[in-house]
Simulated assay, not measured.
Amino acid sequence: MNWPATERHHLTSAPGGLALVQELLNTAPACRPGPAALPDLLADGALGAAQEWADGAVRGWARETGRPDVHLVLADEDLPKLRCLRDQVRRALAAGDRSGAAVRFTSAPVVVGLAGDGTLTVEPEGAGARWLASAVLAEALLAQASGVWRRLKICRNPACATAFYDRSRNNSGVWHSVRGCGNAAHLRACRERRRVQEGAADSSVEL
């Protein structure tokens, strides 16, 4: 799997290195009908699952950005740090949707280099959760500079909260799946309107 956390939602990844940010967000648990709930890939006590995810995500990032393979080793103490980063990135996307208050990010070091062709490069630094934080925040910064950050969104269904890349022409998507979360939301709204209408009819008094 190229992007294991995102592909378990049957989604196409965001372009380039932004897919790594989407990957981190999609490690979160998500509700599904029946027994198909998706677990938290960064849960305490799930170091094996977290390492397997990180191996795939870092390979995908290296391939998409033209970097050499990175051997990243996670430890138990990295998991709460990564969950904290995940929550901060999620709040940052929500703040952008509201055009509201700023979100204080975890800081992480990066190395800015000058390539032979005169282009600037931003390289992650550190190990474990620190390297992932460096890579994720660097890709978020590059996405903001290129204008594609606003297309990375969180599904409006609170039980789902899947991170998806909005490829609609006018950037108007709000559901990671129109057939799934979108239809379910429309059905709930329709049932609520019907309930209100029936309640109003029952309470009417004939004169």
Rank of each mutant, 00 (worst) to 15 (best):
T6I: 06
N157V: 01
Y165N: 09
S177V: 00
W131H: 05
V196C: 01
R90W: 13
S177A: 03
V103C: 03
T121C: 11
G173S: 12
G100Y: 00
E77N: 08
L11C: 11
D117M: 10
R83C: 06
P4F: 00
G180C: 03
F105T: 12
L132F: 00
L142Q: 14
E52R: 10
W61C: 05
D166C: 09
A133Y: 05
D202R: 15
V73C: 08
A161T: 09
R151E: 10
Q197E: 15
A92W: 10
H71L: 08
A19P: 07
L25D: 09
E198R: 15
D55C: 02
A101I: 01
A129F: 01
T119H: 13
S172H: 06
P33Y: 02
S107Q: 13
R167G: 15
I154F: 10
G182W: 06
A133G: 12
R195H: 11
E7M: 05
L79W: 00
L141I: 05
A115S: 13
L152S: 08
D76L: 03
W175P: 02
V122K: 04
G56Y: 01
R90E: 14
V103I: 12
V111S: 13
R98H: 03
R130D: 10
A185D: 13
R86M: 08
W53H: 09
H10G: 10
G34D: 07
